[in-house]
């Protein structure tokens, strides 16, 4: 199964550090590479609380690489 991950690439989330999350997602360990599909969006409408990342249908506010990876793991576990 594949978990869709959408990173907000809007200017506000970019300023607040989405790049770090994109970096981590692009360099995930091999076992995750095939389970996620990374995409971008221009705004989730929650700019004040960025960076925002959507993992499946769960929107993560003030996202950090740790939070996003955690959410991906949970998603993978629940769908197994």
């Amino acid at each position: 199964m594949i978990v869709p991950v959408k990173v907000c690439a809007g200017t506000s989330c970019h300023l607040l550090g989405n790049q770090e999350i994109i970096d981590v997602l692009e360099n995930m360990p091999a076992q995750y590479q095939n389970c996620i599909m990374v995409g971008f969006t221009s705004c989730f409408g929650a700019c004040e609380q960025g960076p925002c990342v959507l993992v499946s249908d769960k929107l993560i506010y003030q996202a950090t690489p740790e939070k996003v990876i955690q959410a991906i793991k949970e998603e993978l576990r629940s769908k197994k």
């Binding site: 690439a9 809007g10 200017t11 506000s12 970019h14 300023l15 221009s42 705004c43």
Partner: peptide, 17 residues
């Protein structure tokens, strides 16, 4: 670039859009 981004966000201009 960082300072420009701060001004853009302040002016509510989202380059991605």
């Amino acid at each position: 670039f960082e300072e420009l981004a701060a001004i853009l966000v302040a002016a509510e201009i989202n380059l991605a859009e």
